[in-house]
C-alpha cells in the first residue's frame, strides 16, 4: 500500500474534504463575477483577459482583476467567461 493511498483512505473514512488530500485547489465562484481560489501556489500569468495559476488552472474573461490576494487564496473579479484545467 502506498503512502498516499493510506492517507486517502483515512481522510475518506473521516469524511474530510478532498482538497486536503492532494493539495488541489478549491474554487468558489459567484455567478460569472468572481472566483475565489484556495490552495493556489503562484500566479504564472496575469493579463487583462487571462489569469494563469500554478495548478494548471486558467481563467479567461474580460477586465480581470485580482481583488484580494493572500497566501491562502486569491479572489479574481471581472467578467469571467471560462475556467480551464490543463493536465
Amino acid at each position: 500500500m502506498e503512502k498516499g493511498e493510506l492517507k486517502g483512505k483515512i481522510l475518506k473514512a473521516l469524511e474530510m474534504p478532498a482538497e486536503l488530500l492532494n493539495n488541489c485547489p478549491r474554487m468558489t465562484s459567484v455567478g460569472n463575477e468572481s472566483v475565489f481560489i484556495e490552495n493556489y501556489k503562484a500566479i504564472i500569468e496575469y493579463d487583462k483577459n487571462v489569469i494563469r495559476i500554478s495548478n494548471n488552472i486558467s481563467i479567461f474573461g474580460e477586465n480581470l482583476n485580482v481583488a484580494e490576494i493572500t497566501t491562502d487564496g486569491i479572489l479574481i473579479s471581472g467578467k469571467i467567461k471560462a475556467i480551464e484545467f490543463e493536465s
Binding site: 503562484a42 496575469y46 493579463d47 482583476n65 485580482v66 481583488a67 484580494e68 490576494i69 493572500t70
Partner: peptide
C-alpha cells in the same frame, strides 16, 4: 515580471489588494 512580483509579495507575507492590470 509583475507576476513574480506578486508571488514574492505573497511569499514574504506582504499583504496587497485591489490589484489592477
Amino acid at each position: 515580471f509583475v507576476e513574480r512580483f506578486i508571488n514574492l509579495c505573497m511569499n514574504r507575507n506582504i499583504e496587497i489588494w485591489d490589484i489592477k492590470r
